[in-house]
Design a protein around this nucleic acid. Sequence first.
DNA 1: CTGAAAGCGCTTACAG
DNA 2: CTGAAAGCGCTTACAG
Lengths: 385, 385
Amino acid sequence: MNRDLVEGRTVAKNPKATIADVARLAGVSTATAGRVLGRYGYTKEETRSHVLEAARKLGYRTNALARSLITGKTRTIGVVAGDIQNPFYASILRGIADVVENREFGLLIINSDESLEKEIRAVDLLREKQVDGIIVSPCDTRDSRHLRDLHAEGLPLVLLDRTVAGLDVDRVAINNIDAAERAVAALIAAGHRRIGLVGELLEGAGDDLEAFVRRALSGNVLSTDTLYPSWQRLLGYLRAHQRAGLDVDLSLICRVGAYSAARAVAAALPLISRADRPTAVFATDGTMSEGVVRAIAQSALRMPEDLSIVCFDDLDWMDFVAPGISTMAQPRLAMGEAAATMLLERIDGSDHPARAIEMQAEFISRGSISTPGQTIGGQTRGKKP
Amino acid sequence: MNRDLVEGRTVAKNPKATIADVARLAGVSTATAGRVLGRYGYTKEETRSHVLEAARKLGYRTNALARSLITGKTRTIGVVAGDIQNPFYASILRGIADVVENREFGLLIINSDESLEKEIRAVDLLREKQVDGIIVSPCDTRDSRHLRDLHAEGLPLVLLDRTVAGLDVDRVAINNIDAAERAVAALIAAGHRRIGLVGELLEGAGDDLEAFVRRALSGNVLSTDTLYPSWQRLLGYLRAHQRAGLDVDLSLICRVGAYSAARAVAAALPLISRADRPTAVFATDGTMSEGVVRAIAQSALRMPEDLSIVCFDDLDWMDFVAPGISTMAQPRLAMGEAAATMLLERIDGSDHPARAIEMQAEFISRGSISTPGQTIGGQTRGKKP
DNA sequence: CTGAAAGCGCTTACAG
DNA sequence: CTGAAAGCGCTTACAG
């Protein structure tokens, strides 16, 4: 408190000046000072300017904490992302930040590293800090009491990229099955018949890849909605094969088991080094894409002459890594914007039923797909010099 | 308030339960309940368990707002970064997040887009939210009243990557002059004599590139500390030339004037297309590096046969874009960690004099440097097929 | 339009 | 070790 302040005299700016200090200097009640400083209620213009002048003199800054304690609103949202360093999340976060900053909201960001335990702690922390709403890319599509509770208690929640079984809340994602199918169809259209897949495919979809594929092929996959994206994209891969009347070779499906480019390299290398290697590979997301391209760079294979690829997510480097990477691009920025916009609407009080926004993925055709067995530069399946 | 709660009966969990509710149910005072729930002061073990039990029954969660209002600490720090989507900032942010999450602090992130106006608003917002400290990568090395005020008022502040004139606070950065000199020296050592530079070089260093270079060459650059990184790296470029007794060709220095890969492409294309083009190019940061590599990909030049390059920052793609990009790598993650660690130390009360942590940049030699005029594959300065 | 009073949900001295 | 009271810095009814 600044009890040493004297009206009428020039006083040193004090960042800790409070509404009471301003009121005293302006000769009004704290209620009135609060009204002009907090921009609520009515104030006579003259009073207003006195208060403002006093606030200026004291270097008054409002303490959002005190305000929030009363209003119950913090004008801050929280987001728990897998890894802010991953371009997928970095772009989404940027989209979120853009809409949030426009509304002068704060943005609290926490990494989950795809760990349920960390996600739960993140959500806890965000709640303690009384955020007005939360955007999460849930790392577990089933075990989600923390999210269910959130929603049950009325805290606005938006799910990004992934869905949670039985949790009917706003969400934004692309149609992963369809997008993957279109990506793989591009390969098939070019004549490929043996197409590899490199995907995270973490546990969660029944754990047994072979059984999953068998079920999928016979049209028996229940609740595709709550599958992880990589499993949904596997479904798209299978569907593209079925549509084209192609058999699926299980040994061509690489289950990396982790969100790691390095692990993807390790998984892709054997696949593309086999004698009966596929003529093309589909990578199920940006991280897997980086792994596959890295594996090819480490091998002696030429792209696309020896191996065609189609990736997922349009990363910075995909248009200048020769021969240009054909890929299924998700509108990452727009996904973040959409999620934030939905969340803010909820925070503003909208109470329509939960909506699922399906964003459009766009296939970008560049140079990484060629016809298998095609002869280029005088040799087929040749080695680099 | 949950006035409808009845002691002894099973009550529905209420996320809005307050310490008063818990105290009532446990039959103790709010002071006592507060002591066990807030983990401060002493409590008899028996009392403790009663309170805990009551809290559990009610689903009590502490309201950090109320606590912060009293303690004056929010256990939240703010960081204003240029663009969280940029890999440079994304990694730094990850480093910051890692140490901050360990201490269970919150992390408020805002983009400045290198605009002073946005930076000022960001800092304002963070202060309103009463963060315990701020990390900023200031977009203006001079006009910085907002940062000066912050520091004068005792709010912990750490500067990242850039320095502000006359603001003696903790900071972390690499030695940009030295790092750039080493990078360019690698080119000179390989025999290059005409080396281009592509850098942001925004206004701020006196605005006149030619005059700056002339001054630098005659050893007259005052306060190199508060230069923007790209200007410091230009200094390193010049110094490498001087050390080698090489003349500097001003026309080889490309001033992009913006933090934009697209703008860098536009600036680099004419440079590398000239008849008397340089035999090598040095890019002053990740964004410029992407621009240069992109420009080369768009040109008919082969790398490194027709043009050698050395980049700055080790981005994901640099080790798999053929022929592998030689670059000066900043320890981005560690820079973020160091900044956060310093900030938390200050928050913990440390009051030693301001420290400047100089991180080590590491040159990574890959395939993008060759000897100029070298004959590879039977032709020199040839075109791609 | 303005002020006195209460209160948001906690923590902090201060007694006991 | 525990409780009654005050208070953090605001906003919110409620009078006037």
